[in-house]
Design a protein around this nucleic acid. Sequence first.
DNA 1: TTGAAAGCGCTAACAT
DNA 2: ATGTTAGCGCTTTCAA
Lengths: 333, 333
Amino acid sequence: MADKIGTIRDVARATGLSTATVSRVMNGNPKVNPKMRADVLKFAKQLNYVPNPAARTLSTRKSKTVAAIIPTIEHSVFAKYITAVEQTLGQHGYNLVLAISNADLAQELAAAEQLVAMGAEAFILTGADHSRDLLDLLERRGIPVLFTSIFDDASAVPTIGYDNTALAYSAIEYLQSNGHRNIAVAHGPTHGSDRTLARCKGVTLALSGQNTARLVEVALSVEGGREAAKGILEMTSRPTAILCLSDVLALGVMFHLQSIGLTIPDDISIMGFDNLDWSKDSHPSLTTIDLPATKMGEVAAQLVVDQLENNTPMNSVPLHANIVTRNSVRSIT
Amino acid sequence: MADKIGTIRDVARATGLSTATVSRVMNGNPKVNPKMRADVLKFAKQLNYVPNPAARTLSTRKSKTVAAIIPTIEHSVFAKYITAVEQTLGQHGYNLVLAISNADLAQELAAAEQLVAMGAEAFILTGADHSRDLLDLLERRGIPVLFTSIFDDASAVPTIGYDNTALAYSAIEYLQSNGHRNIAVAHGPTHGSDRTLARCKGVTLALSGQNTARLVEVALSVEGGREAAKGILEMTSRPTAILCLSDVLALGVMFHLQSIGLTIPDDISIMGFDNLDWSKDSHPSLTTIDLPATKMGEVAAQLVVDQLENNTPMNSVPLHANIVTRNSVRSIT
DNA sequence: TTGAAAGCGCTAACAT
DNA sequence: ATGTTAGCGCTTTCAA
């Protein structure tokens, strides 16, 4: 059964000291007689005392809580990233409160309001596309915000990530340098994802004037990838390469092609985007863009902690992403 | 810039009412004159007022926060499950605080201490294997706990999940009913996972007396699956079927077999465990056990909310899981 | 080095 | 229906 929970007063009484001294001990204040300190610690343990966080927060105005909102956690690069955020925050005594927006601005706003009301001290958001109300809310309250998964020097809010447009551009370039002139592209929903939009833009840029950009939009899942592959194979001229703007999509595409007897990369080359854990292990191994998800989470969390602890201003930091060459793309020059 | 944040007192002053009435309005208490209510709401908005959660928590002793600890979030069924927990909690005005234990009891304990200190009102843990200190801590403080991913009638703590042993048993049975007598099994680390241990037990039980149980333990990843496949193919007699105690492993196994020119299920049958999103879309589609991850998250969250709101006692609830028959297992009778 | 005491912002009896 | 007021448990000047 739950014993009565001890308060700072109980400990003070037990030790014959004041609550102020107990408080000092609990907060590691050095100006306390070691004898007293030992005493306090002893009784605290004995009385099963843990400082009440709400009281502490009320008094100090610090909740030791950081909020992160991501569109989804399933089959995606976000899982990796959020793991890094959580671990890094934890190392500094902060807790992560997670919300999932389902790529919906209204849901994101609702979640954020809750999180603000919960006392989150900082927000880590995904991408740059958020409701005006949300940004206003945070600004009015002076709550620090960070955008991740993108890098944009011009952004008023600091961004931690990579340049999705440039990366997609370079992917097309890479394919072209391998002789591919007829390229199809599969991507997830652009609605609610400025990252996807940016990638599509990069594709269009790189492809402009050479051949029609043939982009097909599907759900962001392996199943979506299969659908995309189906659609692409029905096109008038079969592409020599398919660029998938997410690895999950690439997986679906590969599965579909294989299921109808096509060989990768002999019949069609496939390129991904993300470099998920399994991408190196697929058959064939997937040529893709290695997004620094873990790094991104670590950097974002660290910046937030520095800002909260030392008031260090947060600045955008660009993260490198490289093409990893594996076996799903062949040269047809 | 951050305006000064308004307090309940500011609103009271502005409306000429007492803080009590403002509080009533903010909490939806019906006994308030609609006129006054409108006034309060108006000024609250105008003054940019949001109730301070710490003060509220301190006063009510309710933090509206539930903690969940999972071993990992990557490439796994946990992502799906945690999504359901978060969404269900959110629907009832609760926030999820997430911690990741990396399947390490010490890390779990450390995280839990933080979460308790943060004021989490309930804990949702994975599996039944936790440090004594953690359970003691929660018990002493009277914090409700739930175990998920398992079902165990005998457990003192309520469990929401399925019977891993029975499920693994049935998987072997299924394979046997399809004529397989030489079965190898790939599974993740048993250390730190009572679920995996339980599954292995089911396998051993089902296999006992017929042939040697040939279990190979690898890391829980696609790469681990590839390794397992490699190891299994080196066995003296090649099995006709490989049971993978997680779908991720099955994916790796399939990739490896395909990469050395073997065909599934003609050369070897593969069976998984989880039914991840992509399992129906792989090539061939994966015969596996459909774990009710989403359902589990919803049920767990709902039970916790009911307990917190209405003091409804939490009881274990067994969840059904079925074998989904697809194309990765062939009958060799 | 230690203590006294004034809040932090809100809720909930209790009174009206 | 509304107001008064006493806390909730802790931190933090200010004094000693």
